[in-house]
Amino acid sequence: MDFITIVQILESTLRLAAPLLLACLAGLFSERAGIFDIGLEGKMLIAAFAAGAFAAFTGSAWIGLAAGITASLALALVHGLASITFRGNQLISGVAINFLAAGLTALVGNHWFRQGGQTPALPQDARFGALHWPLAETIGALPLLGPVYGRLVSGHSLLLYLAFAAVPLTWWVLFRTRFGLRLRAVGENPAAVDTAGISVTLQRYWAVMICGLLCGIAGAYLSTAASASFNTNMTAGKGFIALAALIFAKWRPYPAMWACLLFGLLEAIGIRYQSIAVPGIGVIPVQLMQALPYILTVVILAGFVGKATPPRAGGEPYVKER
């Protein structure tokens, strides 16, 4: 394996990790506030569809992004209504949201475009194209440093940079602001927050809506940055990998980034090599690479390699004492 191959794999790792990271941070906000969210997949999917469709209608990637976020927020609101206002089962609500998105995107997509659920291919200026950093050409010509700067640092879409910038931002919001303290508190001990005169309901709605916002960006990334149209079931389980990464990272922002990069790397290797011969072990089939994120998550959940403890009030509807 030569140097340029490694750079290429890392480049594709970044691109595959970005949507995972956005969805993972989305889940982080929601679950830290005590609202389990297995509907990340559905919100991403409907956002990818809305972004692809509206970018095709208007020719503007930005309007596409706004549409994607709006669609994702709508489903987040449903999740909020079900799990906060009506104190329903958060997991069941998530399952419903995933099916709703899978059904609606295919149905409405076929109704709008008659292309079997696909959206029309977007022209270059209706997408989030690659941003070229200053001196990318000059430095890019250098050996070693060139490919690293030209391919890893420069040359990605705006949304990818946004995904990685969201990591320190999330950390800062959660651990350095009053809002974040309250958000984490409603996920650990909502009764205490309530006693302090802060609305648990409002705080949890905020978390769920931030989750919707980030899932919306993740979906828009898929259809308007990573590719040039929406395909049926485009997310293909990415929402669940993001959920796995969230648990793998034990609900913390920076480890979430590393987990998403790891899972992105596994996917990148799986795409590049159908099977890998490891000296002394034998051939690793591609299916094992695909299953590895899930296997690792189960191992982490089992607590054999450090215990993953979810927020204490997670999954529990809060009932105010009367």
Binding site: V78, L81, A82, S83, F86, R87, G88, N89, Q90, I92, S93, V95, A96, I97, N98, F99, L100, A102, G103, L104, A106, L107, N110, H111, G117
Partner: peptide, 25 residues
């Protein structure tokens, strides 16, 4: 032909939503 097979998924989702998650509504 305007209504594809995925209509079933939509109905299924709505049944799960209304009988499960939004039951209290």
């Amino acid at each position: 032909p305007a209504i594809t097979r995925e209509m079933i998924l939509v109905i299924q989702a709505l049944v799960i939503l209304f009988t499960g998650a939004l039951e209290n509504m």
